[in-house]
């Protein structure tokens, strides 16, 4: 393998990790919400809210971390709207989630209009890890170029995935989370407050969607434009199905998607691909991530439906204590 090919591959992997990180946050957030038995299709709207709030607060305070907090809070509050309809009012979760997506889009379009022209927002920092180069063999060749200097959100993502996996599968709270999504009546009978926990995890999912948005507008593409998520919130919902509700597979899907999303840009540097540098034909390449989502669902949906695996059994079903019927 010659040097250019190697650099090219590194570019793709590196860009994939960076572009996939916001998506990872959103996917993990939705995964947690769904594990609790609530389907929240409003991820796109919450991400936009997180992106705008993060951008605006970072811009006005000069502190990107305050921006992240604001973004998470804004999206979290929106998610509670969905919680109200889905959990307390026992409404149709599909319709409520759709409404949330619309509200988020509309709200950010109006409130964000004055931020569109701003370019110099305080961003989340990159982290230098020069010591990675000192590791023999793979240090200077792989670890250093890939991870030696990346944005902090990337490392947050690396931390989040094992943490969430451990939380779900190895802790008492995670056990409760699994129980309320699988069989809320059993959890209720065991003395677990299903309603309170479902609100909590809807909120957590919302905050992670907010983090996804904020990391988009403060790190990956540091600016604000209307609809800047370009469907990533919806892709996150799809990736949760692809992931079979497992955080590790969610990470895999997010990073693959990230790489595919960047592909048209990366391929422009490859001279022997005639059409890659042609922006018109490049539109075909831009379709790949969306088509990838569909293809991923084609393979995972049937599997999931056949084995009845993965999907929390009570997903999308409001819990009513003592509902009668067979």
């Amino acid at each position: 393998m010659d040097g250019t090919t190697l650099i090219f591959i590194f570019n793709i992997v590196s860009a994939g990790l960076r572009t996939g990180t916001p998506l990872l946050f959103a996917t993990i957030g939705e995964l947690i919400t769904e594990r609790a038995g609530v389907l929240n299709l409003g991820v796109e709207g919450m991400m936009l809210a997180g992106a705008l709030a993060g951008f605006a607060v970072s811009f006005s305070t000069g502190n990107p971390w305050l921006g992240v907090a604001a973004g998470m809070l804004a999206a979290g509050v929106l998610s509670l709207l969905h919680g109200l309809v889905a959990i307390s009012l026992r409404g149709d979760q599909v319709v409520s989630g759709l409404a949330l997506a619309f509200v988020g889009r509309g709200l950010t379009a109006v409130l964000g209009a004055r931020y569109v022209q701003i370019r110099d927002v305080p961003r989340l920092p990159n982290i230098e890890m020069p010591f990675l180069n000192d590791i023999p063999l793979i240090g200077p060749t792989i670890l250093g170029p890939l991870f030696g200097r990346q944005n902090i959100v990337l490392y947050l993502g690396f931390l989040l995935v094992p943490l969430v996996w451990f939380f779900i599968n190895r802790t008492r709270a995670g056990l409760n989370l699994r129980a309320i999504g699988e069989y809320p009546a059993a959890a209720d009978a065991a003395g677990i407050n299903v309603v309170r926990l479902r609100y909590f995890y809807v909120f957590v999912g919302g905050m992670l969607a907010g983090l996804a948005g904020a990391s988009l507008s403060l790190a990956v593409t540091p600016l604000w434009i209307e609809d800047m998520t370009a469907g990533q919130g919806w892709i996150a919902v799809g990736l949760v199905i692809f992931a079979g509700w497992d955080p590790w597979r969610a990470a895999l899907g997010s990073y693959i998607f990230g790489a595919l999303r960047r592909l048209p840009l990366d391929l422009q540097s490859v001279s022997w691909l005639p059409f890659a540098s042609n922006p018109i034909l490049g539109t075909w390449l831009s379709m790949i991530p969306y088509l990838f989502t569909i293809v991923a669902l084609m393979f995972s949906s049937r599997e999931a439906a056949r084995k009845r695996l993965g999907a929390p059994a009570a997903l999308g079903v409001p819990y009513v204590r003592g509902e009668r019927g067979l």
């Binding site: 997506a101 619309f102 509200v103 889009r105 509309g106 709200l107 379009a109 109006v110 209009a113 209307e226």
Partner: peptide
């Protein structure tokens, strides 16, 4: 701004 109908719809 232009997004007002969108917001009100939502």
């Amino acid at each position: 701004p232009a997004g007002i109908p969108l917001m009100i719809q939502g």
